[in-house]
Amino acid sequence: MADLESGEGKTPVIDIPEAVGVFDTFEDLQQAFYDLRMIGIHHSDISLLANEKVLKEKLGKAYWRASDLEDDPRAPRAHFVSEEATGELEGAIAGGFFFVGSYIAMAAMLTPASTLAASIAAIAIGGSPSAVIGILLARRVGKHHKDYYTNQIEHGGILLWVRLRDKEREEMAVKIMEGHSGRDVHVHSWSK
Results as ranks from 00 to 15, higher is better:
D3S: 07
L4S: 02
L4G: 04
E5Y: 03
E5V: 12
E8V: 09
E8A: 11
K10G: 11
P12S: 13
P12T: 12
V13Y: 04
I14T: 10
I14H: 05
I14G: 01
P17R: 11
V22L: 14
F23I: 10
D24L: 08
D24S: 10
D24C: 05
D28G: 03
D28W: 00
L29Y: 09
Q31M: 08
L36F: 10
M38K: 15
I39T: 11
I41D: 02
H42N: 15
H43P: 15
H43N: 15
D45W: 02
S47D: 07
A50F: 00
A50Y: 01
V54G: 02
L55V: 12
K56A: 13
K56V: 12
E57I: 06
K58H: 07
L59I: 06
G60P: 03
K61L: 15
Y63V: 12
Y63C: 03
Y63Q: 03
Y63T: 05
R65M: 07
S67M: 03
D72M: 01
A75R: 01
A75E: 01
A78F: 00
A78C: 06
H79D: 14
F80N: 06
V81T: 12
L89R: 09
A92Y: 10
A92S: 13
G95R: 02
F97M: 15
F98I: 06
V100I: 14
Y103P: 02
Y103E: 05
A105Q: 13
A105S: 15
A107E: 14
M109Q: 15
L110I: 12
P112R: 09
P112F: 08
L116E: 14
L116K: 12
A117T: 14
I125R: 10
G127R: 01
G127T: 10
S128C: 12
A131C: 11
V132T: 07
I133M: 13
I135H: 01
A138G: 07
R140C: 07
K143Y: 06
H144Q: 13
H144V: 11
H144G: 08
H145M: 05
K146V: 13
K146F: 08
Y148R: 14
I153A: 09
G157Y: 05
W161A: 01
V162P: 06
R163Y: 00
L164D: 10
R165Y: 11
E168F: 00
E170S: 14
E171V: 15
V174R: 04
M177Y: 02
G179V: 08
G182K: 04
V185E: 14
H188P: 02
S191H: 07
